[in-house]
């Protein structure tokens, strides 16, 4: 196994660790802000590590494509995090009826 492959596997494993941590945070954290924080930050970093790890083993064109995918995912993750956080912030400040009857919180 070459150094490059070893680095790639290490990065992939680190990415998976971040994904797991983010998912754990999503499941275990108390309020929606902390959950959003955990899942968006950790997943963005996890995906980035996985992309770098895979890029080390692939052709540069595929690497560029994966980099683009990561950028779009990063952007949409950040935007949806902000939007969800703003929604729950506004709901806390001024609670309206939940969209679905019988919905909790």
């Amino acid at each position: 196994m070459s150094i490059l492959q070893l680095c790639s596997w290490l990065l992939l494993a680190l990415g998976v660790v971040f994904f797991l941590a983010g998912s754990l945070g999503l499941l275990r954290f108390a309020d929606s802000f902390s959950r959003l924080h955990a899942v968006t930050k950790a997943d963005t970093l996890g995906l980035g590590l996985v992309v770098i790890g895979l890029s080390l083993q692939s052709h540069w064109r595929e690497a560029c494509l994966m980099l683009l995918i990561w950028l779009v995912v990063m952007g949409s993750g950040a935007v949806s995090c902000q939007l969800l956080a703003r929604f729950s912030h506004e709901q806390q400040a001024n609670p309206v009826e939940p969209a679905d009857p019988g919905q909790e919180d």
């Binding site: 779009v72 952007g75 949409s76 935007v79 902000q82 939007l83 703003r86």
Partner: peptide, 15 residues
């Protein structure tokens, strides 16, 4: 629309 989602939609739609 919130300004963030409006500008994100404008960025996303050409793609």
């Amino acid at each position: 629309g919130w300004s963030l989602s409006v500008s994100w939609s404008r960025l996303l739609s050409p793609m």
